[in-house]
Design a protein around this nucleic acid. Sequence first.
DNA 1: AAGTCACCCTAACGTTTGTTAGGCAAAATA
DNA 2: TATTTTGCCTAACAAACGTTAGGGTGACTT
Lengths: 194, 194
Amino acid sequence: MENLSRKEQILRVSAKLFKEKGFEAASMRDIAGAMGIEAASLYSHIKSKDEILETICFKMADELIKAIDEVNDIYFNAAEKLTLAIKNHVRIITGDLDASSVFLREWRHIAKLKLKDFIKLRNRYEEGFTQILVNGENENVFEATDKKFAVLTILSAVNWIIEWYDPKGKMQPDEIAEHLTEFIMSGLKVKSIA
Amino acid sequence: MENLSRKEQILRVSAKLFKEKGFEAASMRDIAGAMGIEAASLYSHIKSKDEILETICFKMADELIKAIDEVNDIYFNAAEKLTLAIKNHVRIITGDLDASSVFLREWRHIAKLKLKDFIKLRNRYEEGFTQILVNGENENVFEATDKKFAVLTILSAVNWIIEWYDPKGKMQPDEIAEHLTEFIMSGLKVKSIA
DNA sequence: AAGTCACCCTAACGTTTGTTAGGCAAAATA
DNA sequence: TATTTTGCCTAACAAACGTTAGGGTGACTT
């Protein structure tokens, strides 16, 4: 934390507070207080409270998009692609729980103009996943009638991790990814319906 | 809307605004404005802004718990129970999208004391689902190594509906429930892993 | 006709919000 | 050593917040 630039520290502290109290409820004085300085001092490093939120959200979006693009660029079959995409997603999300929570929950509070760009990025990410499912059908590996529906369901499961993941808990990121992948591909494994 | 009690109208309007702007960002003046009255006038019908949030959240929680208890009280096999539980959940959620969104997103802003009770209710609901999975294992119908994990994943998928469901869209609640149930039970139906 | 009730008003309160202006001290650079 | 840069300060701002007090008006009830 100490070898980070002052701006980076503000982003970290803000992410933590935005996650805990929500963007609107966390005040500049809260953020400053957590850093041991006055609220006015923050403005030497950042332009506005909105800028903090935007930076956090767009950084996460960029990271995720970069990951899905890489997966789709590699020559893999669809099952391997999906497995890797989920593993990457889980790794990124669990790698920075504070920023991820803000990215997933508080993005609604991004100011109108930037919000449009953000949603575009989110859609691009979703399309990256959709592409994998389309591949899967072409390769005759998956069966997913409604791809949009399937992608949203998959992402909901992967994103819900932030609600219960504990870095000190038993389940580590890669294990979570494995479990999820299995669940997504095979479901509850119905043995028989009596 | 007109034959509802004034308090009920306030709850409706508040839910809509809490969903759109978030609890903290939606002001009493916003709510009053949407009803064509002054902010101070709201206090003839409600005690506080916090009370509005609590009422919305606890009402949804009660409704869901009542539904899962009913399912678990009926003599069904696990597969039928799960199917019905999901159908009920989807019906309740889609039945009042505004309140559901508040229930799922804004519950964090419930005041400390009441928050404990709310989380207890949420856990009770989760346990209702867990019970079904346990039944499923005993009946040799399901296979779910980590029940807690499975329940959270299932609920995440079911709850994500509020993010994309459109009452005027093609997919109607029961159809969504069917799709989801199939996905949860059988996943993406992997045909072969090359 | 008198009383009650539901409903809304204006005005104001104390607090908190994000943000700006201007200045001071230590560290880095020249 | 002189100078710029970095980082923080105090003080203050206008605006918005949730909420209270007290009064008024019209519709039902008795």
